[in-house]
Amino acid sequence: MVRKIAFNLFAWSIVLVVAFPLFWMLVTSVKPQFELFRRPPTVLPETWTFEHYWKLLSETNFLGYFWNSVILSTTTTIVVVAIATLGSYSLVRFRYRGRESLAFLVLFTYLLPSVVLILPLYLMLVQLGLSNTITSLVIAYTTFALPYALWLLRSFMAGIPEDLESAALVDGASRLGAFWDVILPQLLPGIISTALFTFILSWNEYLYALVLVNSDEARPLTTGVMNMLISSFNIEWSLLMAASVMMSVPLIVVFAFLQSYLTRGFGAGGVKG
């Protein structure tokens, strides 16, 4: 019994150390500015305040960036998941020439560093006159999101028993009818988990946003918040921590309600291959 308690305390102290930076982010965001400079620092705020959140929403362009990020990530997710669902169905359940090499290419691009693609993409999007638009970012994000989604959905698709589809075909369903009535419902958990991962990936992306967008109209949260740090004269840490918390809100929502989908995606993705 004593050993069990000791082990629990040991385990939880590690967990708390790992989680401490996130706790500190929350605490800092609700402390008044003057309390940050108190020596020794207060672990819990003496006075709670939400002024930083208010300032963030009313005096900075945070909401604009947030909105851009929502549009950008949602569009990317919908486009990518739609293409990848059809693509993975084809890759897993159909036979034609070049199928194997295509699967190989998907895996290859899944591992490809984005700094290789970013230079030609930059040139391409500038020539197309798309620089500084959300569209350009959606196009750029497909370069990493599509291989990722395809790879994830491929393994979800492979997990659906082939007999189910054959049974529907014997019953006289067309191939597409079987896809719609049998495969899609079975694949739904996989689609949700892929969509969540794609969304998070796009929400957190930084490099493409840094290179391709240089105006506040199209700037997403990642580069927008970073700009707030660089452009401010003296750094307001409480404000930045409040921005960090707000930026993580979608993730917290996903964590609270849909965590099982995230762990499922983990198993299906890169690790199991």
């Binding site: 293409i83 990848a84 059809l86 693509g87 169905y89 084809s90 890759l91 359940r93 159909f94 036979r95 034609y96 199928r99 295509l102 290419l105 998907v106 691009t109 490809l112 290789v116 693609l117 230079l119 030609p120 993409l121 040139l123 391409m124 196009i139 750029a140 497909t142 370069t143 599509l146 291989p147 395809l150 191939r175 597409l176």
Partner: peptide
Amino acid sequence: YSMLGLLLIAPTVLVFCAVIVYPLISA
């Protein structure tokens, strides 16, 4: 069936060529 398979993979191939293969070669 294999025609249908090709049709379903067509969007993937198109996007891949436009945003990955072509940029990779031009890099």
